[in-house]
């Protein structure tokens, strides 16, 4: 017995001086998340069905949509392409954003959150970033799946590699803007413990005001709603994304530049997100509500 005590104590005699890099630690947190999710086979299967069915519904709704109406609003006349791009992008953002907050709520209910915060700030930040990147990796399966199913059903989406390059750039930019929002939501969750309201509100706002299923110009007759829509970064991201892959507009198109400007205005949200998150974290630590749920 004395032998194993000695051996166990030995481990703590050396003080490690070397540390993994920030990125390496972020990647480690991502890696373990992927490992965990791979164990949920049933969950993956259902997710797959979910993707196919949700695209199929709009494939059939597409039969009802008048192509003339759609093209008179300035899009290419293919509703399936319109819906698939909308659903793909909004779900992509939404799952990624909610990911972090969900992860936090999980850690809190499992009781592991307090020990996570107990590690030093630098480590905690890389854990946070790891979770965010993970969120986007996981949900990009959703995104790619949706687009592929849409294309298989004949959605007319541009195949031009240069336009796709532009589309991915727009996607990344939109993500960057929304990472901040995700982190703020997570922070508010730690403090207020009202996860669903926050996230669901985000999803509703994104789906409805972003014009995921219908062209936003239809909202023009309802001015206050239309203005709300215009104030959201997601609306501009989605509009650029659609215009690129449906209308084959390049970034130099004047309307595109306008949307781009709007998006860039929101970019500082990432920095702000971190600050606000840490503020909430400290507040929660002061009030001792870190581990409660």
């Amino acid at each position: 017995m004395a032998e194993d005590v000695r051996e166990a104590l030995e481990i703590f005699r050396v003080r490690e001086t070397k540390k993994d890099s920030f990125m390496a630690r972020a990647l480690a947190s991502l890696y373990y998340q992927l490992k965990i999710i791979a164990t949920y086979k049933m969950f993956l299967a259902i997710e797959f069905i979910d993707i196919i069915l949700s695209v199929l519904i709009y494939y059939f709704v597409g039969f009802l949509v008048s192509p003339q109406a759609l093209s008179s609003l300035g899009y290419s006349p293919d509703y399936l392409a319109f819906a698939v791009l909308g659903i793909g992008m909004s779900r992509y953002l939404w799952t990624s954003i909610s990911r972090l907050a969900h992860k936090l709520s999980h850690e809190i209910s499992e009781g592991t959150f307090e020990s996570l915060v107990a590690i030093d700030v630098d480590n905690f930040r890389s854990w946070l970033i790891g979770q965010v990147i993970y969120g986007f990796t996981w949900s990009s399966m959703w995104f790619v799946g949706t687009i592929l199913v849409g294309m298989a059903l004949g959605a007319k989406i541009s195949g031009d590699p240069i336009l796709w390059f532009q589309a991915i750039f727009i996607l990344l930019l939109t993500i960057a803007v929304h990472v901040g929002i995700g982190i703020i939501a997570a922070g508010m969750y730690i403090k207020h413990k009202q996860l669903e309201t926050m996230l669901v509100f985000l999803s509703l706002v994104m789906e409805f005001f972003g014009g995921v299923l219908y062209p936003l110009s239809l909202l023009y007759n309802y001015r206050p709603l239309y203005y709300i829509a215009m104030l959201l970064p997601f609306t501009h991201g989605l509009e650029m994304f659609r215009r690129t892959l449906m209308n084959e507009w390049t970034i130099l198109h004047p309307q595109m530049l306008l949307h781009l400007g709007f998006l860039l205005v929101f970019l500082p949200l990432i920095y702000l997100g971190f600050k606000i998150f840490e503020r909430y974290l400290n507040l929660a630590r002061k009030e001792g509500v870190l581990g409660t749920y």
């Binding site: 949509v65 008048s66 109406a69 789906e207 409805f208 299923l213 219908y214 062209p215 239809l218 909202l219």
Partner: peptide
């Protein structure tokens, strides 16, 4: 959430109906 979701869903299909023949 349930209420808000339903509300926005109705609005979505209300708007979608404009481009549907």
């Amino acid at each position: 959430f349930d209420f808000a979701n339903t509300f926005f869903m109705v609005l979505t299909y209300f708007l979608l109906a404009f481009i549907i023949t």
